[in-house]
Design a protein around this nucleic acid. Structure first.
Lengths: 133, 133
DNA sequence: CCTTGACCTCAAGCCGGCTTGAATTTTCAG
DNA sequence: CTGAAAATTCAAGCCGGCTTGAGGTCAAGG
């Protein structure tokens, strides 16, 4: 199996060298061994990094992601947790959609004060972002 | 006009007292004056806080939000910026949707290794979250 | 009048997720 | 063989957005 220097992992994964060391500290990835001082990574680390990046984008913390790999680096994905996160993402998507519409409305509404526009207020309320004004 | 103690503003806006002081430091909100030591706020601060909360939810930084109020606290919303942010939100929504689908797929796909499932890989690529594996 | 609870200021701390810097060591191309 | 490029460790710093703590002040109800 071809071994990769940390720099090559960084280049191919798009993850900074310093971040890779940090991930190794956290136990998120593992180097196969050393050549002199230098860490050597197997190519499977690239797949792991894809999953890590995916997990981060989905809003998991690094700690949570760490819990999704077994000690030997195999993904071990907790179905329930994933569905829960997917549900959370759906909720977030709905929220962001409301927000986006509110933003467009604010940008385009010719009313003197948005705060008095009933449509705008309704949008806000739909987003659970409102004080008791 | 009725004046509000900071505690009442906190209660009615859902924003912590410490956060309100912080916002005042940043110039995001303004107290009308003091009664003794105590800040007194006008009720319009509640509307401002709604907008601030909205802006935060939409991903604006506090600095950016500060730029959306005139010196006298009137909203002064930069249309272009709002549309740009709405566009960004749309992009984020698309990304999150892909993510959500990927998550559901991972949770349900019976394949031994998700990393080898073509459908999963396709989902990942669609989300621009992939390394050159 | 006096207590008490809400308020005040200021500096420091916390969170996650890295990045940066300094001082070294090693590898590899020429 | 040599010298540059790339790697190493470790501690400290940075970011935004607050929160916390210590120590002090004050207004209003009983």
């Amino acid at each position: 199996m071809k071994l990769l220097d940390i720099g090559e992992v960084a280049e191919r994964s798009g993850v900074a060298v310093s971040a890779l060391r940090y991930y190794e500290d956290l136990g998120l990835i593992t180097s196969i061994g050393r050549k002199g001082l230098r860490r050597q990574f197997g190519t499977e680390v690239l797949l792991q990094l894809s999953l890590i990046t995916l997990g981060k984008a989905a809003g998991f913390s690094l700690q949570e992601i760490a819990g999704m790999f077994t000690k030997d680096g195999q993904p071990d994905l907790p179905r329930g947790q994933l569905h829960a996160r997917a549900d959370a993402l759906e909720a977030q998507i709905r929220e962001l959609t409301v927000l986006k519409d509110a933003l467009r409305h604010v940008a385009d509404c010719p009313a003197p004060s948005h705060l008095e526009c009933p449509k705008f207020r309704k949008l806000l309320r739909a987003g659970s972002v409102t004080a008791e004004v």
